[in-house]
Design a binder for these strands. Sequence first.
DNA 1: CATGAATGAGAGTTCATTCAT
DNA 2: GATGAATGAACTCTCATTCAT
Lengths: 194, 194, 194, 194
Amino acid sequence: MGNKSVQKRQYILEKAKGVFAKKGFKDVTMQDIIDACQISRGGLYLYFESTKEIFLEVLKLESEEADDTFSKALTEECTGADILALFLKEQKKEILNKEGDLTIAIYEFFFANKVPAKENPVRVQFKSAVKIIEKLIKDGVESGEFICENPLGAARNIMYVLEGLKVCARTMGITEENVNKEIFYIMEGLVSDS
Amino acid sequence: MGNKSVQKRQYILEKAKGVFAKKGFKDVTMQDIIDACQISRGGLYLYFESTKEIFLEVLKLESEEADDTFSKALTEECTGADILALFLKEQKKEILNKEGDLTIAIYEFFFANKVPAKENPVRVQFKSAVKIIEKLIKDGVESGEFICENPLGAARNIMYVLEGLKVCARTMGITEENVNKEIFYIMEGLVSDS
Amino acid sequence: MGNKSVQKRQYILEKAKGVFAKKGFKDVTMQDIIDACQISRGGLYLYFESTKEIFLEVLKLESEEADDTFSKALTEECTGADILALFLKEQKKEILNKEGDLTIAIYEFFFANKVPAKENPVRVQFKSAVKIIEKLIKDGVESGEFICENPLGAARNIMYVLEGLKVCARTMGITEENVNKEIFYIMEGLVSDS
Amino acid sequence: MGNKSVQKRQYILEKAKGVFAKKGFKDVTMQDIIDACQISRGGLYLYFESTKEIFLEVLKLESEEADDTFSKALTEECTGADILALFLKEQKKEILNKEGDLTIAIYEFFFANKVPAKENPVRVQFKSAVKIIEKLIKDGVESGEFICENPLGAARNIMYVLEGLKVCARTMGITEENVNKEIFYIMEGLVSDS
DNA sequence: CATGAATGAGAGTTCATTCAT
DNA sequence: GATGAATGAACTCTCATTCAT
């Protein structure tokens, strides 16, 4: 149902995003969102009927924004290596930004909610990132910046490392230096090959 | 507290482990553990006062067992490459074994409970694994099986990839083939270097 | 209040009647009636301020219609026995028609809402039915169709039996045969007297 | 589960019975029963999980008690006519006792909860009452106190009249005189037959 | 007149935690 | 030591009722 005021809906989703960023998924109650939005119980239920529904909507918004950011980056005049470096820098921020992004909430949610592969936004985003990185590496190889015999394998390796860093940052703690080292290791592997 | 019967304590921890493996951390209630152990409410509280405490004790047991397994493997007469392959095979099993190990519980727990680095068992285990892999690679290089200029970097890379695979397996689903490809990519990087 | 559009008022009452027939009285919410009428919340409150008020209005309409039906039957050229048989046949239908009439709603309503005897529509209808049946029996006696020393008593007995059948049909279930037997027992008592 | 203290269970059922007698079935909340019992929320849920379950248990108790009363009456040395008169007197009390018995609650409950015929306690009790009345009439006929060609029909007629009286008493109000008249009409039909 | 978003009281349910036995 | 009944805070969800537009 294309219910109620669109602005309020957006407003709720924004506030809810903040809550999920702060508390993950499982600990978030409708009450938390009510408090964050300063609205009434019934008011919230008018728009959404569970934290699950709200979370999925938040994710939808997020992925749209992410797509925009990515497209913008790609349209700018840069070499593959530049863009990859930029991408990794962004990822570094995300990896280290322990409170304030949805990573933990996403993990918690998808641990508990099995979603068919094709509709799984995490998977979709992962796969599209792999593809883009592969493309960037290929560009870099063509322009002579990179040396790489298996761009797809390298792209996947990069994505899994980033995912590993993200989860380690949130379970065991990680320093910026740790991340730098990994990124350096990755770039090194692409630049020289000996 | 050197409390009560040690056997019962162990018994509770074993049963609790099964519960955590099945339900993660956050969804586990004291009642779940009571049911699994077939003991009384008060009986459980006599030994532990929260799921958190129980979980940490379960982890302690786990890491001791893990250490044992590792040591045993290392004492056997094998080349570095063999042991690494064996290790990766074990990891593969763990990555794909989506239900029945503590991975999700561990993630959920450490997302929510920040533990000082040195006492953080996940971190401790991660670091020790890195060290061992580094050693194995060095051995492999010495024996001519591997070519690697930066064994520590490679070891860390491997561990982050494995962590990435583990978390991806539980959030977006992963096939055995996916894991095989990643492991192959890693081994390939160690064997050939061109 | 000679409020607003009379048509809309009637329209709401008709739709509401359907809702009460389906759900009884207590389970009906203003939302149910809103949905049935496809009008707005505020729109409904403009005409009625509670399900109670709506229900009483629905009953008023009903009893008017019932009176009409009865009068029509009485004006037709029939013997008392014929009309009584016709009346009982109608009652049989009502007794067995478990979903789709207001019986349950009426019971639920008047269980909870004590209404002064003279204004109580159920009572009014009951008493008028008794009077009519009494008249029919007297007619039947006069014409030699019936034998009955106490027409008023018989009329009351008939009405209580019918009421008993109605309530039993809705609490314990009743077959058509059960009803037939009772009606037969009643008619038998009027026809023969031995 | 043969849970917890039997006394407390009985205690709750007794108090709950009072609540149902006072408020019917649908209006009774768990809170009402909590208040009546002066126990905690969780305490109540320890024994019962819904008003429906509680109500069914209350009914069970009731029917056991009713059976006892009946048996006792039957074992006493009385003629059929005496016992029938006694039974009708009891029924009169029940019919007029508008607040304080479960009649309304029973109606409300079974309007909304269709129960398989054989398990339906209302039906069971109704049928057994019919049988007993039939027996009493037969006894009366044998001893010459009654004249009746169709004891079963008469018994059913009596039960439906009583049911009708009960429901009318609760929807439209009924005086003791009304009930007396009906009982007199019934007894009259059994004694004389002209 | 009419709309429907917004409110908040209140019902249902679950669980960590305590404590008398 | 061990038991499990009892407590009450916290959550989810629903609805009658109001009110700005």
